[in-house]
Design a binder for these strands. Sequence first.
DNA 1: TCCGGTTGCTACGGAATATGTAGCAAGCCG
DNA 2: CGGCTTGCTACATATTCCGTAGCAACCGGA
Lengths: 103, 103
Amino acid sequence: MVKRVRGSTTGRPIMALLDLLGRRWTLRIVWELREAPRRFRELQDMTGASPTIVNTRLAELREAKLVELDEATGYRLTALGNELLRLFLPLHAWSEKWAKATA
Amino acid sequence: MVKRVRGSTTGRPIMALLDLLGRRWTLRIVWELREAPRRFRELQDMTGASPTIVNTRLAELREAKLVELDEATGYRLTALGNELLRLFLPLHAWSEKWAKATA
DNA sequence: TCCGGTTGCTACGGAATATGTAGCAAGCCG
DNA sequence: CGGCTTGCTACATATTCCGTAGCAACCGGA
């Protein structure tokens, strides 16, 4: 059972990726893992999301091989996940500019 | 009135941005506007989303000054929206790699 | 052995959000 | 006038999310 990715039946990876990341809390969770591994409850507290959804998103991210659970330290980005995060880092600086422009 | 962004009360722009983009169809819509302006129904057909949600997302993106409506040609990215898209372009190449790794 | 704490994770009922179909009013072209 | 496209909306249904509570497994004392 291929856990079909919502809406994207084209088979184009970019669509699957945009769909995966375009789910509530997914981007945020990846972001919160940028510096250090985090425990389940840490992620819950940092994001404010319900445990149900934290768990669901972590499961999706694990299946996508972007996140993994190291029992000793907590959830962390995989090598692949780190690459993805690096692509997103410029967003931080840009968001400041964007905030000024929309204020 | 700053149309508070869901869950993110920190006032940090990055959180607001991650939250805005982490809504169903938002990333996808921005992506579909990468090459040319698109009409309302074009976006509907390209994404497969319902008109209700297309309209909602477009309204949000317009308020965020990332998208604007040119009545002659359709919805298009603003200068700001184009900057954001440019940050996302590397995702396309990366997604191919990712697809292979998860296959 | 039992206690308190942490771990990841799940059940469940109610609230919020998305979907799908239909259709509106305004504009344009003939 | 008719027929087409435009952006957009109503409304009932289906899906998803939230918030609270709590589970079983583990660990470190006492």
